[in-house]
Design a protein around this nucleic acid. Structure first.
Lengths: 253, 253
DNA sequence: TATTTACATTGATCCTGATCAATAGAGTGA
DNA sequence: TCACTCTATTGATCAGGATCAATGTAAATA
């Protein structure tokens, strides 16, 4: 049944049922839900996460108000979650990459409270939530790991709140770049060179500043030799000083 | 060793074991963890939440780095959770009142990532977390309710992020007051008249603005007939227009 | 009750980042 | 390949809110 007769079969399988690719063999298992699970337990999780969903750039995973059924683990790709303010202005609550789980906001009300959209072609693992809760009741390690993930989300949000409430534009942008850097590094990519998947406006919507300020600040960083930017391509050239900028240390000036 | 020959027995009991007051008879059971539990299940939760802790104004529940053992449900009183930025500046991540649960940030790393302090004399229910996870494995309704509470915390944080990232000072303060109003109302208190438990500086640290701006904006609201302030005492006089201010609607001006 | 300390208000000035606007470059589709 | 659209850069100006500073008021402590 597996990848036997070449292209045909598995291609079809993939589209119809999703490609069967176990958590146990997923390169992200050290970042995702399976952390700390024994082989037998991981099998049970595998059986639960049957479907993989291919998302095209610009495609929505869910929208505000959608009935809640699944959590989504990101296998590959890049997403943003966002809400619209009363005046229609977009506010981005997070950028999400492989190994992260989105949709947890919906648990509380049984409806999504934000929108999630792919910023590049991506793949998701669909996790049926009632079944996940069921499995959590049987596998303490999974239960605890799930609680940790929700808690981590809370901590992450607190970090953003501090950033928005207490930092100025330069500091925010430095923090943002360093955060991306660190997350790419954790996934085995370069910590110093990467492509921004989002526009300047989106960075602004996330960091609470205007796109012009994002652009200007990037230019300024470049002039100071902290990095080079070329459209979406960024190369961080001085992580130390970038940290100093983030922390408002004199020495960075 | 305690204050023994004085304030009789029940005082001693209270200090040693905490006063035995069941979740089932708690006036907050419709806001807190027991929502939706059957009587028999509530008993089991009762047995888990044995200790009540009396907190004096200014006393800390936990501090950054403290090893994680308990979640805390607020029975009475008022708390703030805060973190300190690199430069020592305080950032407040939340104000918390009766029926709310604090400490969930610590699940992820087994250590608290923020500080929690009582802003007035208060009472807490101490919930031993490993035991709570155990009970969640046995009582699906409790499990789901706990997940809902964590999810609600995430939604709450997203709201603050939008506020900090997309609103101006006036709007933030209006949103803050209306949020307090709504939460007091949900607890059976007046929606229009209440005491602020926190200083102007603390409001500022929460809303990402300076205490002078908080003060000025309150004065402005008062001049516009939206409310009256007298130190910590606030009376909201026009909830409708306050909403309009929050949403930046023309008609409010 | 007096004294001290913490908290709040108000004014004057300055600066960061928003806004308005024009141009240029990159990506996309016919 | 061209045309169109989306995205990014840069400049000029403006305003919201920070900062500095002084005074007033409430609350805690001796």
């Amino acid at each position: 049944m597996d990848a036997q007769n070449q292209q045909p079969l598995n291609k079809i399988m993939m589209n119809v049922n999703g490609l069967k690719q176990a958590c146990s063999s997923c390169s992200l298992r050290e970042l995702c839900l399976p952390i700390g699970l024994e082989a037998s337990d991981m099998d049970r999780l595998d059986r639960l996460v049957t479907r993989r969903k291919h998302m095209q750039r610009g495609e929505h995973v869910f929208r505000v108000g959608a009935p809640f059924q699944f959590l989504f683990a990101i296998r590959t790709g890049f997403f943003k979650t966002y809400e619209l303010q009363e005046d229609g202005q977009e506010h981005i609550t997070g950028f999400h990459m492989a190994g992260e789980i989105i949709g947890m906001d919906a648990i509380s009300t049984d409806h999504n409270t934000c929108n999630a959209v792919a910023l590049e072609d991506s793949e998701l693992c669909e996790i049926p939530f009632p079944q996940l809760e069921g499995l959590c009741r049987e596998i303490p390690a999974l239960q605890h790991q799930f609680h940790k993930l929700m808690s981590r989300e809370i901590i992450r949000d607190h970090g953003i709140m501090m950033l928005l409430g207490g930092m100025r534009a330069e500091e925010r942008l430095a923090a943002f770049l360093l955060n991306l850097s660190q997350r790419y590094a954790a996934r085995g990519y370069s910590a110093t060179e990467f492509h921004l998947r989002m526009t300047r406006a989106e960075i602004g919507h996330y960091l609470g500043m205007k796109l012009e300020t994002v652009s200007r600040t990037l230019t300024k960083f470049q002039e100071q030799g902290l990095l080079t930017v070329n459209n979406k391509h960024v190369e961080l050239q001085d992580l130390v000083r970038l940290h100093q900028v983030m922390n408002r240390e004199e020495s960075a000036l």
